Amino acid sequence: MDAYGEQVRLRAMGVADAESLWRWNHDAEVMRWMDEGYAETIGQVAKWLDERAGNAYGDVLFGIEEPGGTLIGLVRLHGAEPETGVADLDIYLGEKDFWGKGYATDAMRTACRYGFEKMRLRKITLTAVVENEAALHIYRKVGFVEEGRLRQVFRHEGQWIDKFTMGLLAGELR
């Protein structure tokens, strides 16, 4: 089931999205504040998209589309368990032409609303590099609060940097 925000549509991702995902994951500017992992071929990305289990309670992966239908990023709610009602959120916009125009904020709100309403989550968590001010601004804007600090867990340009752990309860979404 797709989810709609004011500016974005969240929809399931599939093999047809492999080229975009591969391109974003190999763009240093897009991946600047993320754990990159190891380089993969387009074929490996397509295989992962093809073989991953379909969206279900424990792991929901959405492509973020702008009104014209262009795939501009992804958002994922994962690690959810019915016993705890908590999921982790990952998000990024891979198409840099759409940065700073409200799409990420709308995608965050839409994904969180989906998590709280459709998945019946009680809490959504994420981690963010403390120097990633653009992301932190968005997270705070939609209601996430810092709950802790993970010291020196992210390596960037030869330096170890801290991350915030952040959380959003169902009634806190703005």
Rank of each mutant, 00 (worst) to 15 (best):
Y103P: 13
E117G: 03
F164E: 05
R155C: 10
G94F: 00
G167T: 00
V130D: 11
R113I: 07
G79R: 00
Q152A: 07
Y38P: 15
I91G: 02
G73P: 08
L21W: 07
R23C: 13
V75E: 09
A170P: 08
K141H: 14
N55P: 01
Q44C: 01
C112P: 04
L74P: 09
F164R: 03
A104W: 01
L49R: 01
H137S: 07
G14C: 06
Y38N: 09
D88M: 01
I138V: 14
I138S: 01
T84A: 01
I72F: 12
E133C: 13
W24C: 04
K47L: 07
D2V: 08
T41Y: 15
R155Q: 09
V129Y: 03
R151M: 14
Y114L: 10
W22P: 03
Y57K: 04
E19H: 12
A134V: 07
K101A: 06
E81C: 07
A3G: 03
V60M: 09
D97C: 07
M13N: 13
L61E: 15
A16M: 06
A170E: 13
I72N: 10
E131M: 11
A170D: 09
P82I: 04
W48V: 11
I72H: 07
L126V: 00
V153T: 15
L136C: 12
A87E: 02
E117A: 15
S20K: 15
Q152M: 02
V30S: 09
K123N: 02
N25I: 13
M119W: 02
A28W: 05
G102R: 11
Y139S: 10
G158K: 03
Q7N: 09
L169K: 00
M13P: 14
F154Y: 12
L61Q: 10
L89E: 05
V8A: 04
E95A: 13
D50H: 10
F116C: 05
F62P: 03
A104P: 07
D88W: 01
E133L: 12
A12R: 06
A39I: 14
F144K: 02
H156A: 11
M119N: 00
E36R: 15
G63F: 13
V86D: 00
V75D: 04
G94K: 03
Q159L: 13
E36L: 09
P82V: 06
I161A: 10
I42N: 06
N25F: 14
R140F: 14
L21I: 12
L61H: 12
V142W: 05
W22F: 13
R32E: 10
T70M: 12
G69N: 15
K163V: 02
L10K: 00
E66I: 14
L173A: 01
R76F: 06
G148N: 05
A104I: 01
I161P: 07
F154P: 02
D27L: 08
A12M: 05
A104N: 11
D50T: 02
P67E: 11
V145L: 15
G73T: 12
D50Q: 13
G43Q: 09
D162Q: 08
Q44R: 12
E6N: 12
